[in-house]
């Protein structure tokens, strides 16, 4: 499967936040979207999953324009997991995960099929959250919640998985654990996965492809070798240094403010 984005533009209050974004990604590819705060990472992911309206450009899956998709088709094609979830009305992890099945159910279907429940079972096993199913969402630690948010998106069984800062609040051990899972699932389920991320080290370790945003514009797309000292210095306005070059991947660390 191939996701093609052409000339994508998004405006908030007629102020452009995403300018003519163009790129292609394939199934089985784990793509990292990086860039400074406010560079348009979240907007890009939300525009692809149709959570924000784009004012120009097109998105295609295998040549089919997304405009031709129905709501439930979109729900089966894209799943977005952002960092936010309202938790004031008490509900359990199980109840939260079950909503991910709605795009797969017919309008008149009132209860879940056994397939729906099996998917929840499988995903909760993969993300190691089976013990959490009966817990309240509001009682989870931030690390547990992040795994649950990703699990909910996976329960949707999408072709394209969009994860916004999926490991932001995790310590390095859980970060690596969660990203290992994401990488494995991307390969085993042949997903198109886009991860918005701010951690250069993690990006270098895991990315098959890197997409660098700066001020709403894509300034670089390519393999992990795209990340060079010069690019990072220019985009983030810092002084950086390459500490290791391992298998063609540059591990870059910031030294000081430019």
């Amino acid at each position: 499967m191939r996701l093609v984005v052409k000339g994508l533009r998004v405006e908030y209050d007629s102020k452009p936040v995403l300018k003519d974004a163009e790129f292609e990604v394939l199934s089985g590819e784990l793509t990292f979207v990086i860039g400074p705060n406010g560079s348009g990472k979240t907007t890009l992911l939300k525009a692809i999953s149709r959570l924000v309206r784009h004012s120009g450009g097109s998105i295609y899956i295998d040549g089919k324009d997304l405009k031709l998709y129905s709501y439930s088709e979109l729900g089966r094609a894209f799943a977005y997991a952002g960092p936010e979830v309202f938790r004031a009305i008490p509900s359990t992890v199980m109840e939260f995960l079950l909503i991910g099945r709605y795009p797969h159910q017919s309008r008149m279907q009132y209860l879940e099929s056994s397939k729906d429940v099996e998917v929840v079972e499988k995903v909760s096993h993969e993300l190691n959250i089976r013990e959490l199913l009966n817990r309240k969402l509001s009682e989870l630690s931030s690390g547990e919640l992040q795994r649950v948010l990703i699990a909910r998106a996976l329960v949707q069984e999408p072709a394209v998985l969009l994860l916004d800062e999926p490991a932001a609040f995790l310590d390095i051990r859980y970060k690596v654990e969660v990203l290992d899972i994401i990488k494995d699932l991307t390969k085993s389920r042949n997903l198109i996965t886009l991860v918005a991320n701010n951690d250069l080290h993690i990006t270098t370790l895991y990315a098959d492809k890197v997409l660098v945003l700066s001020d709403g514009r894509i300034v670089a797309v390519g393999g992990p070798e795209t990340l060079t000292k010069e690019l990072i210095e220019e985009v983030y306005k810092i002084k950086a240094e390459v500490i290791v070059n391992h298998n063609g991947r540059n591990f870059i660390i910031p030294i000081k403010h430019a």
């Binding site: 999953s49 149709r50 709501y71 979109l74 977005y80 309202f86 509900s91 795009p103």
Partner: peptide
């Protein structure tokens, strides 16, 4: 019921589940 179940978690959840 289903639209409301999705709604309580936030607009993003409603929209991507088709409501």
């Amino acid at each position: 019921s289903k639209p409301l179940n999705a709604y309580v978690y936030g607009d993003e959840y409603s929209k991507q589940l088709g409501f």
